[in-house]
């Protein structure tokens, strides 16, 4: 069965404006999602903020350039993910619509399989 990574993106400005009650509700929503869709969830995590990210790119001399920050500077940053295993994209999209993502949205990416 195909696996999909459901990437949760947050608008950090919206998220930082949220109050503690909203975060509490969000935690509860994730717990409920995990309970309801547990059968197809293969993994998942919340990430620390993009300001804690470190990016590494190869330089032209065979070494690396290590920089502070996320790989791409965008308004929405990767905030967490679920790995799900379902029959096809329609089911993946149905699950993805249930993933709590009040500060942005989600992106669904098929997992590549090497044979």
């Amino acid at each position: 069965m195909p696996q999909y990574l459901v990437l949760i993106y947050d608008d950090e400005a919206v998220r930082s404006a949220a109050n503690p009650e909203e975060f509490e509700r969000l935690m509860k929503a994730h717990e409920e999602f995990c309970a309801a869709d547990g059968a197809v969830i293969r993994g998942g995590n919340a990430l620390q903020g993009a300001d804690t990210a470190t990016s590494i790119r190869p330089d032209s001399a065979g070494g690396f350039i290590v920089t502070d920050g996320a790989f791409a500077e965008t308004k929405e940053v990767l905030a967490g993910y679920y790995l799900v295993e379902v029959a096809h994209l329609d089911e993946a999209l149905a699950v993805a619509k249930r993933v709590p993502a009040p500060f942005g949205g989600v992106e669904v990416r098929p997992i590549r399989v090497f044979e």
């Binding site: 195909p2 029959a87 096809h88 994209l89 329609d90 993946a92 149905a94 098929p110 590549r112």
Partner: peptide, 14 residues
Amino acid sequence: ATAAIPYRVPATDE
């Protein structure tokens, strides 16, 4: 093919 868009008629709710 790669995102596995199925060759199917959607379920009633969809």
